[in-house]
């Protein structure tokens, strides 16, 4: 009966990167990389001890991708290469 929950309960989708399908991960890779670069630039500019870690929200998939999730998506690219 668990499948019925999809219709009866509006569950928050997991913010973990595992919930992002493979085809979307490749699509999001550029956005993640560009955001990480921006964060690194800001950290250098303002001499921040910690990077500002923004959250990405993809409405098409209904997922939130935090800094760890972004690193995982960017890591896919390194793994593929």
């Amino acid at each position: 009966m668990k499948w019925l929950e999809r219709f009866l309960v509006r569950r928050p989708r997991s913010a973990e990167c595992g919930s992002v399908p493979a085809w979307a991960r490749s699509r999001l890779r550029n956005a993640c990389r560009s955001l990480s670069e921006e964060e690194a630039n800001m950290q250098r500019l303002l001499h921040l001890p910690v990077r500002p870690s923004l959250t990405l929200a993809d409405e098409e998939l209904g997922v939130l991708i935090d800094a760890e999730g972004r690193r995982s998506i960017e890591g896919d690219d390194a793994g593929n290469q």
Binding site: R27, L28, A31, L35, P52, S53, L54, T55, L56, A57, D58, E59, E60
Partner: peptide, 8 residues
């Protein structure tokens, strides 16, 4: 494909 960016 609009992606929202939210503060930490």
């Amino acid at each position: 494909l609009f992606i929202h960016h939210e503060p930490p």
